[in-house]
Design a protein around this nucleic acid. Structure first.
Lengths: 259, 259
DNA sequence: TGTACATCAGTGAACGCGCGTTCACTGATGTAC
DNA sequence: TGTACATCAGTGAACGCGCGTTCACTGATGTAC
């Protein structure tokens, strides 16, 4: 087998990265459906057929971009989580929430690629499900950790709320077993709500649905993270993570990152 | 001016509708970016240039589809709201939430058109903002109505939660003045959270992000609506709307509607 | 260390396709008097 | 009620464009002995 350190392998890895970078550049202008293999080869000064040595088809290139995006977001979330005090569960929750939003704002088209409408005719292969679950695992881990050490407040069920119907309990049980062993069905369902709320709000901001409703989403997002954290039962953050020191940042910038 | 009842006007309205129907049919197969003016005219048996008598460009056709989608969803939400007892606020909230999900599941591509990634290069014109706000107004109306008659529970702030920071309060105040005159800043912020949660969960379901996490989203969605309603302060539904009688419907059907 | 052979990278031409939009036009439907 | 004119619907040809993918090929890089 060829060693991955060989000259050829190194050059190959470099060109592969350049192809993906150029694809991301095009995606930033025209969206995912605007990515053109021919345009990429043109930009890199190679023959249009040459790209097939690297990606056997357009769909394979798309898959690679999707995997990269999930991994990039997942890494950002893991980093934010690790950067907070292990036992400051509220702070971890808020930090990860902000990491998701910040990543989305600095990689808007990559966010749209994975969390927007599915690309028609494209079926995500197995390779994407591992990377896709990284953020989710981080969020679940926070709730589960808090529950394990007894830091999760057992909020009383809302008045008048019927007991958990069986079908919902079955779903919840599956999740408890899979990712939240230290929690209860109620907690896990609320976590699902908080999880979808987080991405719902980020998507609404990026896709323009807050326009005319909210002028500066930053403080609203901030506050909502705290509220939803409390909703799940997490304690309020003891220390404010950098993203939350209020007067430090205004409405924020977009696209300062790149990939 | 030509009366809209004239023969010409009637025929014109019919063909306009046929063009949009055919566009929706194509969208159901290939997504919004797969809509082709030439393919539409082919399907309708007319010359490819003829469509320009009806829509001056592809973007104008897209705009019409977007407006129709918002109106269709808005009407579904309004109908669900009107079909519940005026003063059964929890039931109204759940009914509208289910209406949104049901509409999305039976018009998945139209949902993706308006709530998925923005079509690159397309800038939504003014005509869309009225129809776009219909669902949102319905949801806001429920919370405001409940507050006006004193039916909204003033849930105590979560323990340890700092008081509302100014910037968040400013945003909230604007919303109170615009659409929630009978409520408070806290309520309005929680409503925003519940609103984004609703669409976040529907989007996750439609776009495949619940796969491998939740097997049957229906009961989870059901329960989450109740939880989020309670989170906002709405009372639990007194009467279960038809969508919520548990054993009546299983995991649900997709695409039984069409447009 | 050198030679023979296999693997891989990259080329250039070609296939077959579809797209949005414009334009000058014919013929039918409506309007004014 | 009938005529003259204006408006509109729909045609067919053309413009100019870009796309993904295949294929037979040259030449360079690596591997085995």
């Amino acid at each position: 087998m060829p060693p991955s350190t060989g000259l050829r392998a190194r050059v190959r890895a470099e060109l592969t990265a350049e192809i993906k970078d150029e694809a991301r550049r095009q995606m930033a202008v025209e969206g995912a459906s605007g990515i053109s293999l021919r345009a990429i080869t043109r930009a890199l000064g190679m023959a249009s057929s040459g790209i097939y040595r690297y990606f056997p088809s357009r769909d394979d290139l798309l898959t690679a971009l999707i995997v990269d995006a999930y991994d990039s977001l997942g890494a950002a979330a893991e980093e934010a989580d690790a950067g907070s005090g292990q036992d400051d569960f509220g702070a971890r929750w808020s930090a990860v929430g902000h990491a998701v939003r910040d990543w989305a704002r600095s990689h808007p088209h990559e966010y749209a690629l994975v969390y927007g409408s599915p690309v028609p005719g494209y079926r995500a292969p197995q390779d994407t499900i591992g990377p896709a679950s990284r953020v989710t695992s981080v969020l679940a881990g926070i709730v589960n950790d808090a529950s394990r050490v007894g830091a999760l407040s057992e909020s009383p069920p809302a008045p008048g709320l019927a007991p958990l119907p069986v079908q919902a309990a079955v779903e919840a049980r599956r999740l408890v077993d899979a990712a939240f062993p230290a929690t209860t069905e109620e907690v896990v369902l609320r976590s699902v709500a908080a999880w979808t709320q987080l991405f719902g709000m980020v998507s609404f901001e990026l896709f323009g649905h807050l326009e005319g409703v909210i002028t500066d989403p930053a403080p609203v997002f901030d506050r909502t993270l705290l509220e939803m954290g409390a909703f799940v039962g997490l304690p309020a953050p003891r220390t404010l993570p950098p993203e939350m020191r209020r007067d430090a940042r205004g409405s924020g910038r977009i696209g300062h990152g790149g990939n």
